[in-house]
Nucleic acid binder design. Structure first.
Length: 322
DNA sequence: CATCAGGGCCCTG
DNA sequence: CAGGGCCCTGAT
């Protein structure tokens, strides 16, 4: 049984040029989450916003010089203008639509390895389709396990706490509110086979429910203080904080720790070797790409997975554990 | 059958 | 600051 969203409003968004629709709305390296769906030139996701479950569809439009996104907001009832304005602002923030990437694209187009990726993906944003809370929930199920099991745990959470939503002929899950997990209790989470992550997920949900972690407040912090604040969240360590700073808060330079899995991949990409020390990779990235180093790495990473999807890259296949 | 590592993090000594 | 332990699952 799904909630049917029958009302819709169409709004035109104008992202800063250059803009790359598919690079922004599909991240080939990310693991699949059943609350969003991408096809070339089209993207759908659910959005839990202002207490309501909404459906979002975005399609590509405009021209290269004047890129546009046609946004359709689906809802269970007619939405006030103010809510729609809020949705537009939120999507603009999450997908970094106002970002001016010209200095990055123009400045680094001549780079040896990076240049080709920029050529293919110029205007791709670093983006998060999640709220901070939702991102944290995903980050926790990704920690210290394989993709297959992460997907199992996330599915269990959606089945238990999520909402099925139908709009535009699709059915997707909507994320639960933190209160649902906080109220269910740690024991219930353990029954869902979330193991020791049950404690972390429960504590994070409680923190959001109580307001001790607040996304708006963290967005307002000076960038230099965000890292410290995020590390105070139970279950967030050096690996997760890097992902958060980059994907949720768009720190283009948040490339200062390298988990083993990515170390292997960047070893190949930058040095064509199996295993180069993490410090060497990070130093090289800082040297080559400066303040853009994480964004540059992201371009390489996404380009790699995109190429892999088109034609299998054997060494990468071996690194992707299912 | 047992052991171990997996896209970490917390906690302890 | 190093290292054990942690829910589960699949690989060996």
């Amino acid at each position: 049984m799904a909630i049917n969203l029958t009302h819709s409003e169409i709004i035109t968004l104008r992202p800063a040029q250059p803009f790359h629709f598919d690079g922004t709305f599909r991240k080939s390296s990310h693991f699949p989450v059943p609350f969003r769906h991408h096809e070339p030139g089209k993207y759908w996701q659910t959005l839990t916003w202002d207490g309501e479950v909404l459906g979002i569809r975005m399609t590509t439009g405009g021209t290269g010089e004047n890129p546009e996104i046609e946004l359709t907001v689906y809802s269970g009832h007619r939405l006030p203008e103010s809510v729609l304005d809020g949705v537009v602002a939120e999507l603009t923030a999450r997908f970094d639509l106002d970002a001016d990437l010209r200095p990055f694209v123009d400045g680094l187009a001549g780079e040896p390895v990076l240049g080709a990726a920029i050529g293919r993906w110029a205007g791709m944003r670093v983006s998060s389709s999640y709220s901070l809370y939702e991102f944290l929930a995903v980050a926790v199920v990704l920690q210290n396990t394989t993709v297959r099991r992460s997907a199992q745990m996330l599915a269990a959470l959606f089945e238990e706490f999520g909402t099925r939503v139908a709009f535009d002929g699709r059915e997707l899950f909507a994320f639960w509110r933190p209160g649902a997990v906080a109220g269910a209790g740690e024991q219930r989470l353990r029954e869902l086979k979330l193991g020791y992550r049950a404690k972390t997920l429960h504590r994070i949900a409680e923190a959001f429910e109580a307001g001790t972690v607040d996304e708006t407040a963290i967005r307002a912090l000076p960038p230099s203080e965000r890292r410290r604040r995020l590390l105070q969240i139970y279950g967030v360590g050096p690996a997760s904080v890097s992902y958060l700073l980059f994907e949720v808060f768009h720190h283009y330079d948040a490339f200062d720790t390298l988990p083993p899995w990515e170390q292997k991949i960047y070893s190949r990409l930058l040095f064509d070797e199996e295993r180069v020390p993490a410090e060497k990779i990070l130093a090289e990235a800082a040297h080559r790409w400066g303040e853009w180093r994480m964004l540059a790495a992201h371009y390489l990473f996404e380009d790699l997975f995109w190429r892999h999807a088109r034609e299998e890259i054997p060494w990468l296949r071996a690194l992707i554990r299912l």
